Simulated scan of single mutants.
Amino acid sequence: MDESMMTLRRLLTVHDEAIIEAGTAWVRETAAVDLAERPVSETRALVAESVRAYAALLLAGDPRPRDAFIERVTTLRSSLRFRISTLLRGFFSFHRALEPILARHSVPDHLAFDILRRVDAACFEAASLTADTYARKLHDVVDDAQRELVRREKLAALGGLVAGVAHEINTPLGVAITAVSLAQDCLQELSDAFEAGALRQRDLRDGLGRAREAAGMALGNLQRAAGLVTGFKQLAVDQSSESRRTLALGAHLHELLASLAPLYRRGPHRVDVDVRADVVATTYPGALAQIVTNLLHNALVHAFPPTNVGTVRLWIDRADDGQVELGCADDGVGIRPELLRRIFEPFFTTARGSGGSGLGLHIVHNLVTDLLCGTIRAESEPGRGARFTVRFPADAGA
């Protein structure tokens, strides 16, 4: 160990408490905004730990105490509102507290300069590691929160669809119940006439005909209700699953629109499907379901003012480069250029007051780029509608 480090060892042995106290006071004074509500004892304990970490690094060449300290303090602060400058002051405090002690105890200038040079180098390295680690953990916190919000957004969309499907199912079930009741009345009339010995051939033929018609009506409406339930179950399974399977995308888009009918059937707007090419792809049906749902819902909510009636067009095609093209266009009010640039940002919405979360198109963008390994392009002019074009490989995610 050279003379500079031997001098530092002696100072730390004799004056460690003074260094810790001075460092604590400096950190508390310069980071008062973050630390005003935190106990002094906590700050002192962290400064003391940083001093021990410096001693291990400078005197023994052991970075493990420093790395453990960085890991602990960044974890401690990542869930609280702390500026990164406050964390870094814990490392700068060692230099601040050591400098007056070197002067007070008449350490020769060349030794004091060498000690502070080495301390500064160690401080710079520790500060860089702390900044990187803290930023990574803050990103993890934000990502976790965003994933939870996206999950809730998906569940909320599914919940809205449940309400719509329930409304849609009520109609065929109501007709089926009425038809079954009519068939029951017809059969009861025939039974009563038979018991009374007054059943004529014409009455039997007419009664059975009415009962058959009622039974057919009941069966047709029950099949319609069963189809709605089956389609919705598949949509719900797809949206909660990330498994891949091979699909005929044109037929699949028609099935999706049938399942999503509760989103638009009760409104005045028309939704058309255009299958321009018979595309078969191995992809994620859950992602496709979420993309189509969000694009359609976004168009129905934002494209048409209350007094306007419009059309939303969805299409499937094969692009010139062989990729799958999925599109959604409307003839609504369009999007202003300054808003068009921001539509894929998380939490950006022009419908905040009416329940918009700003996550719908952000979810679409993430699904297209991350899961389908594709691209999405938005085009619009005020008064001339909006057009979203998604392109992805036919073997997405392989």
Rank of each mutant, 00 (worst) to 15 (best):
S191P: 03
L296P: 00
Y54A: 01
D317T: 04
A156K: 10
S128P: 04
P108D: 09
V175N: 10
I316G: 00
S181L: 14
E255Y: 09
V237N: 07
L314C: 06
R265M: 10
D272C: 08
A258D: 12
I169G: 01
P268G: 08
V180P: 11
A289C: 09
L11C: 00
D120K: 15
L256V: 15
R151H: 10
A131I: 08
A18V: 08
R152S: 08
V47R: 05
L247N: 07
T282P: 06
F92C: 10
L300D: 03
A56Q: 01
G374S: 04
G322K: 02
I335M: 04
D278K: 04
R44H: 12
G334I: 06
G383L: 02
E338N: 07
L116H: 02
I363H: 11
A351Q: 13
V273F: 04
V142Q: 09
A166Q: 06
V180D: 14
A176I: 07
D192I: 07
C123N: 13
R118Y: 14
E345D: 12
A251R: 12
G227D: 08
M1L: 08
A97F: 01
L260T: 01
D132L: 13
R391C: 10
L190C: 06
A31L: 01
L253R: 07
R276T: 03
A127V: 14
A163R: 14
A303M: 03
L116R: 08
A193K: 15
G209W: 13
H139W: 10
E125W: 12
L129A: 14
L295C: 00
V150E: 10
F392K: 04
A135W: 10
T230E: 12
C123S: 13
L367C: 05
E3Y: 03
G197R: 05
V364M: 06
N294H: 12
L12V: 00
V275S: 01
G310Y: 02
S50H: 09
E242T: 11
V280K: 08
V14A: 05
G355D: 02
A156F: 12
S357R: 13
H15I: 03
R89Q: 09
L371E: 13
F348K: 05
S41E: 15
D330H: 04
E148A: 11
A22S: 08
M217V: 04
C328N: 06
A131Y: 05
V279T: 05
L102N: 01
P393S: 11
L88A: 10
L199E: 00
A215V: 13
A25T: 03
G174Q: 06
N294Y: 14
E338P: 01
D132C: 08
S4P: 07
F91Y: 14
D317N: 11
A103K: 15
R270M: 03
L76M: 06
H254E: 14
R212F: 11
A56M: 00
A277N: 07
A183L: 10
A126N: 13
D114N: 12
A287G: 08
R200G: 15
S50Q: 12
V390N: 08
A32C: 09
L256T: 15
T311V: 10
D140W: 13
G322R: 07
G231K: 02
T350P: 06
R384S: 11
P337R: 05
I20K: 07
L190D: 09
L288V: 00
T389H: 09
M217C: 10
S191C: 12
